[in-house]
Amino acid sequence: MDDSNRLEALSYFLKTKRAQLKPESVGLPPGSRRRTPGLRREEVAQLAGVSTTWYTWLEQGRDIKVSRSVLDCIAQALCLNRDEHEYLNDLALGTQVVSMKIQASPMTISPSLKKILSALTTCPTIITDRYCHIVGWNPAAAHVFVDFATIPESQRNLIRLLFSQKEFKVLAGNWEHFAKGFLSIFRTYYGQYSGDEWYTSFIQEMSNTYPEFKSLWMESQVSKAPEILIEFRHGKVGKMLFDLTSLQVQGEDDLRCSIYTPVEESGTEEKLKRLISAQ
């Protein structure tokens, strides 16, 4: 995203996090004459040890000079977690990263990753890139989710599929929680690759097409590796429970390996084995 979009994203993030804070949670009286939820700008400024005018300019998305030390104080005042703090730094400092060229054909993953995929026979596993494009999966994932090979490569984006494919909404018993988790991961990329216009275009397209995406995206959740318990309602074997483990793959392609581990004593692994053997 260019500087104007980056600063607009910074402005919205700061406003959202300020509105989500209760005064009493930071040692301030709740008061009875508050017109809007959350803290006032001057209260954030006071907690961070900066002037109200300067913080107002920052929240308005003005192009002003900021330092990491001051951003640390802002993050503390807004009670940001580590991932949210990094996201704030990325947006405020304007980290520029050369965007990855989107390939016309699927990315070739390494032999070692292919071996990992094939070895995880009872753990559905999906590999995505920094755009959340699905670039690899194992047979278990095809059995539990959908056969991604039947989806055109240009549409094989995990975020897009969450909102465009009815199968995902039917499958996930806690679909909103499921979607929020992946959106929080996607937002970390959005902040990290602030020089890439693809994100701005994609978010605008999704917001215009899917009202649910826009609503959940506006919550501004950020997490590199959210803890998600997935409840699937599979049409053939019924209820299945998985814990999601999200691992970053080191390398210039910035790949992520999402492993769905069957919850112990839930019968999920046995059901998955029946699905695979019936094929």
Rank of each mutant, 00 (worst) to 15 (best):
I134A: 01
E264H: 09
K273A: 08
P30D: 12
F213L: 08
A225T: 15
L275G: 01
K17I: 13
Y210G: 06
L113N: 00
V98C: 06
S194E: 11
E270V: 08
Y210M: 09
F148C: 04
I127Y: 04
T95M: 14
Y260S: 03
S223R: 13
K273M: 11
M218L: 12
L241G: 06
G27D: 10
E86Y: 07
Q103E: 12
G251L: 07
E227Q: 15
M240V: 13
R68E: 15
A48E: 00
D2K: 13
L183H: 08
F213Y: 09
I109L: 03
K22Y: 07
Q20T: 12
Q46Y: 00
L88V: 10
R33V: 14
Q46A: 00
N174H: 02
S25I: 05
I159Y: 10
C123F: 04
N81V: 11
P124E: 01
V50R: 03
C132R: 10
G61L: 02
Q165L: 12
C132E: 11
S154R: 12
E219V: 09
V70L: 14
S184A: 15
P139W: 03
T125A: 01
G94D: 06
K236H: 10
W198L: 12
E212T: 14
Q221Y: 12
P111Q: 04
A77C: 02
P152D: 15
S118D: 06
G31D: 01
C257H: 06
I126D: 00
V237D: 10
F213Q: 07
A149Y: 09
E269D: 05
W198Q: 14
N157T: 03
I64W: 05
E212A: 10
F163E: 00
S99Y: 09
A119F: 03
W137L: 04
Y189A: 13
S110C: 05
G267H: 01
S4C: 09
V44R: 01
D243M: 12
M240A: 06
F186W: 10
W57A: 01
E197L: 14
Q46N: 01
L247Q: 08
L21H: 09
W57F: 05
Q20S: 15
S220E: 08
K180V: 07
T209S: 14
E252M: 11
A172F: 15
L161C: 02
I230T: 13
K22V: 07
P23S: 05
F178K: 11
R62W: 03
F148Q: 02
A104G: 13
G31S: 00
N174S: 04
Q155P: 04
D83S: 11
R256M: 09
K236W: 10
T36H: 07
V66N: 08
K17W: 15
P124K: 00
H177E: 15
P30G: 04
H177K: 13
C123V: 03
F232D: 10
I203A: 11
P30K: 11
H234C: 07
W54Q: 00
L272T: 00
E197T: 14
M100T: 14
A140S: 08
W217Y: 09
A140F: 01
R233L: 13
F242Q: 02
D196A: 05
P262V: 01
K166F: 07
M218E: 14
L183Y: 08
L275R: 00
F213G: 10
P262R: 05
P226V: 14
F168T: 01
S67F: 13
E84M: 14
E231D: 12
V70D: 06
R274L: 07
R18S: 13
M1N: 08
K101V: 04
